[in-house]
Nucleic acid binder design. Structure first.
Lengths: 216, 216
DNA sequence: AGCAGAACGGAATGATCCGTTCCAGTGTTA
DNA sequence: TAACACTGGAACGGATCATTCCGTTCTGCT
């Protein structure tokens, strides 16, 4: 039996299995992004496989949902870390938002929340993602350009507003989301003159308010 | 038989019928706002009436959906007209956005689109609402404060981003939406210094792109 | 008082949808 | 060629939901 870690070039059935692994996850992401309540069969047919190929890998729909969501969370963290690696503080902050919008990773988490029982590991990753967002916000403030009444919780809701925009063509969707992200950044950036007279109204969302979706 | 136009003070069954008329529409708005695919029975129980009271008034679910949506469209128009009555150009523009956000009327249209066959009258009202939005945008530009690359199509998407924010408490939802509306207005308002260096990226949405939801 | 019927609540119906299981077929490995 | 891993998709069973139907209550009128 070949070493399963070097999963490079299998032929026939094994190759198909390896291809199916990612095909199913990709399909699941695409399908559930479009409709969180889509049937499992839609994922299978989008992936070009039978239902059994899917059930061989996942214990059930909830399991699949969880994996897709957790995968999205991991991407979120990866993007945040990449952004954090930028030298310029303001650049780190803005590129983070742009990255998340481009990766279309936020709506995944948002729309799927509450449709499965989260694992402990997901909880840990979620905590890590919050911490990263906070670091990014601090760097934004440190740059002197981010308006002072902007909080990490605002990141979540700004991204959510962008993620709500959806069009048939994914690339067009990305471009339009960028347009409104730019608009909000203009409102955020004191170097652009924003926040000259008034602060943002109302308190930002609390942690508890943001966590509400996850309850089922 | 009493004159049905003066629907003021009926007693007993008639009064209940009159009350149910609005109770059902209110319930339908609330329920479908929360979940566009909610069952008809959910609307009935929320309204505190039986299913038959509902089917007595509407030909079916699609009919109900259509009425709710058309009602929302009419409110949209009413708010736009009120805003247009403001003296100050910039005030007219901003208060329009605030009004629509407060009335939570936009997400209604957005989420329900495509789930019913629109009537000709709805088409006419939709055209009217576009025209009003365009007038409001022109006044924004006339005030000299609205950044020049902002178009009427942007209104739709800004509102859509706000409408995507949703929390268990409606009042809290309203407040938080206002927060992000304010953020976007800050990015829109050249008097706040926005748009000093860069324009918004990407072209705005076209009419066709915005109309895509209505196709079924 | 007594009747016709408007209006109602909610159970019954019938169809559809969907998650999951099952099985026969196919290529792979030894 | 025998054992096996994997697959596609049909079949099953439960759940959901729009709609219909029926028995009851209340109103307005004679």
């Amino acid at each position: 039996m070949p070493n399963p870690t070097e999963a490079a070039d299998f032929s026939g059935r094994r190759a198909q299995a390896a291809r199916n692994d990612s095909a199913i996850l990709d399909a699941a992401r695409a399908v559930f992004l479009d409709d969180p309540k889509a049937p499992v069969s839609a994922v299978a047919s989008r992936a070009g496989v039978g239902i059994s190929a899917l059930y061989r890998r996942y214990g059930g729909k909830e399991d699949l949902l969880r994996q897709v969501c957790h995968d999205g969370l991991r991407r979120y963290i990866a993007e945040a870390e990449q952004a954090l690696a930028e030298d310029d503080d303001w650049q780190a902050f803005t590129s983070f938002l742009a990255r998340i919008v481009d990766a279309d990773v936020h709506s995944l988490t948002v729309h799927l929340a509450g449709s499965f029982e989260p694992t402990a590991e997901m909880g840990a990753d979620a905590a890590r993602s919050s911490e990263l967002a906070e670091r990014l916000t601090r760097r934004g403030h440190a740059s002197g350009r981010l308006r002072s009444d902007f909080t990490p919780a605002d990141i979540v809701l700004v991204l959510e507003g962008c993620a709500a925009l959806r069009f048939p063509d994914p690339e067009r969707t990305r471009r339009l989301r960028r347009r409104y992200l730019a608009l909000q950044l203009a409102g955020l950036d004191t170097a652009a003159g924003a926040a000259r007279d008034t602060g943002l109204p109302g308190p930002p969302a609390s942690e508890e308010e943001l966590g509400w979706r996850w309850r089922r």
